[in-house]
Design a protein around this nucleic acid. Structure first.
Lengths: 195, 195, 195, 195
DNA sequence: TAATAACCGAGACGGTACGTCATGTCTTTAT
DNA sequence: ATAAAGACATGACGTACCGTCTCGGTTATTA
């Protein structure tokens, strides 16, 4: 009978401390060194407090990231009218995130956890990834060949990116980002001369 | 100075037993349950024998996979003259592998380990992934717009696939595979009528 | 800096279980079979709990013995006025202990550990042996030739005993005990006729 | 069916190397560091060679000691006619051995092994100790009160000595040695004036 | 003089125990 | 009731040695 704790009584102080400690440790030691014990010690918090509010290392990182993103305001989704330029901006930003050691470490952690726990993968997908993908998806809507699935279209942008990041098969630069957009749009653009 | 062991004296029996045990355990318990102790016990082998020849769980899985692939003969790279059909076959096969629980588990393990150890990622890339990618790359050569990087072109095929597999954002079917090929080729095909 | 644990929070249950398990194992398998792992398993206790409170097998046995002796009340030191009879009783008791398989096994363990670790030898000497020797020493005081060192006098009683026990050079019987007392007293008694 | 090896074919070179290595290691690391593997490595000898000719660490040390003692010629047993002086010499020599770090380490090793293995204790007693004790015993013969057991008489000399050595209850000096002889002889001497 | 044993060095092998680390639960004391 | 602190049972880690077992490569007789 592990009754759920009362969120109203939750100590905001501890919550912040844990999230901060997690990010710090992630930067210092990588995901491997991000143990519950280390987080508790670093945060000056009892282990039980962590187990009371989170289900594992992954959820802590997830919360830490959500906290950061939330603070930065809702994801910017530019719409200048120029589709090509807008996508270029978004993809460049994403590639830059993957190239940034700090954010990269977070992404790495979430990916590992996602591969470990199906349930966790769902959380990441829905809370972090989906909004990001939907930004592109909505913007793409109406500018794409009628016969392609929109989800698949979006994956044409992000898939190659993550693949390169994960396997380190090449550099993650602005030029690379532009190349992705060019290719993807070439694939998706309605036939130029449908006769 | 832990001097390296003499491969000539290596027991083939133990090697096989370890690799088999690893795959069995991977199927039964997932990567989480694939502990060195469990492998040793299951294989009827001393732990030191494992540590003597492998540097960790990841390398065992990598060897196990390499062993299997090696046994199946060198990667098939069909070349019927019909580029579209050939790629469709390759991509369908890869998607099928990702959909297969057993092989999927192996891929999952290798991915986790790659995200954990930079060094390991390099091994996976060079021993497993690169050959696979090169198959596509070579076949693509000459059939692609002059201004696109070949590596990037290949990622257009595999990137989306892995992304969908990892995040479970959609089904992994033949239809999906065909869709990928269609899109990628649309992106890469030289302009049909430059007029 | 492995900070010392808080004795106040120590589980009396575990402490008892470990001490009991140690004595049981000592009886069943001898000191050789008294491994930390076996003790932990038998006691239903984690290894870390043992390492938290004891520094090794020796200290466990030492505590187990101290616990037993402590429970039996402070060492009896008879003083009937008849020095010869009192010593005979003490020496007989000690010889009996050495002849008893169970206690002998404990003594054996402590001796081995004492020979292995200087630090441990000091502990055994001060916590177990010294009190025992002092019992004899005090009783002897004033009844001994003025020119002999009291410590040396006491060793005249216990030294031969332990020697015989350790090397198994002869039986450990009451008669033997009496012989020791006779000889030692003959050596120590003030010259009967100082003429 | 582990047939016994042929001593005629035994490599004297290896035998010496093992014995030397054992003594060296005993000096450097104590009995704890005297592992079979260390001896083999230090001696430049295969482990099997050791297991072929010795049954354990103890036997190696025993052989090493016997080798040394044997080289020094048969135990000196002085007989100047002055019993008191002769015993003083023998006991002083023994105490000096126990005070010597190198020989002390050997004795420590043999004692530990004796406490561990009953069979080994017998070997030590018969091959090393008995001859030493018998030297005293023979010399004592005829100079002792008729009612005391000769074995017990001898233990009166060596028992206290070993006890002090083992428990480090006091210094091991010539004065101490002389004190032992004085006390022991006082205990054993026929009544001075049988009147 | 060849062959045929055995010993020899080396070290891989299946094991056991080590001492350490992190897990997730439980208990104690203090807000 | 929540929190900090940390002891607890559990179980995996990676290391050290154990004693057995192959491997070639010398010896050193025996045929």
């Amino acid at each position: 009978m592990p009754k759920p704790p009362d969120p109203a009584r939750r100590s905001e102080r501890s919550r912040k401390a844990v999230l901060d400690a997690a990010l710090t440790l992630l930067g210092e030691t990588g995901y491997t060194g991000l143990t519950i014990e280390a987080v508790a010690a670093r945060a000056g918090v009892g282990k039980q407090t962590i187990y009371r509010w989170w289900r594992g290392r992954g959820e802590i990182v997830l919360d830490a990231l959500a906290d950061q993103l939330g603070a930065a305001g809702p994801q910017a989704l530019p719409n200048t009218g120029d589709l090509d330029a807008d996508l270029r901006a978004v993809v460049r930003a994403t590639v830059a995130e993957l190239a940034d050691p700090k954010l990269s470490e977070i992404t790495r952690a979430l990916t590992v956890e996602s591969l470990t726990s199906e349930n966790f993968a769902d959380q990441v997908r829905d809370r972090i990834l989906r909004p990001q993908l939907d930004t592109i998806k909505e913007r793409l809507c109406g500018h794409v060949r009628a016969d392609v699935d929109l989800d698949q279209a979006v994956e044409l942008f992000v898939g190659p990116m993550y693949h390169r990041w994960m396997l380190r098969t090449g550099p993650l630069t602005d030029e690379y980002a532009d190349g992705i957009v060019d290719l993807a749009l070439a694939a998706l653009r309605p036939a130029p001369n449908p006769r």
